[in-house]
């Protein structure tokens, strides 16, 4: 059965959306960082840290993992370690964002 969309289009769209998420996420992180520098806000500190981990660090780790697999530096099985690192970064980032919501300033 022919695929609904050509594989190259799907791959390109996935990469573009992942990059877009990282850009938007890091933009919000930058706004929060300005709040940290301006008002020494702890709430903004955890929000910016969380956003950087969730969108920045996780994205670049996943990107690095894909590149390492593509250039045969690591095997597909070893890619699971990269996936674990990505999930850990995402979970830590989400915890930081959740904590920023409950901080009373």
């Amino acid at each position: 059965m022919a695929p609904l969309l050509p594989y190259a289009v799907v791959e390109l769209a996935t990469l573009a959306l992942a990059a877009g998420s990282a850009v938007v996420g890091l933009f919000i992180a930058m706004l929060a960082l300005r709040g940290v520098l301006r008002d020494r806000s702890r709430q903004m500190l955890f929000l910016s840290g969380g956003m950087i981990l969730l969108f920045g660090a996780a994205y670049f780790t996943a990107l690095l993992g894909s590149a390492l697999v593509r250039f045969h530096v690591i095997s597909l099985l070893q890619q699971n370690v990269v996936l674990l690192a990505v999930r850990t970064l995402q979970f830590t980032g989400l915890c930081a964002i959740a904590y920023s919501l409950v901080i009373d300033e």
Binding site: L31, A32, G35, D39, S41, Q43, M44, L47, L101, E105
Partner: peptide
């Protein structure tokens, strides 16, 4: 600016 609005909105949660 947007930073002020973000801080104001986040404080409301």
């Amino acid at each position: 600016d947007m930073t002020d609005e973000l801080q104001r909105l986040w404080r409301k949660f």
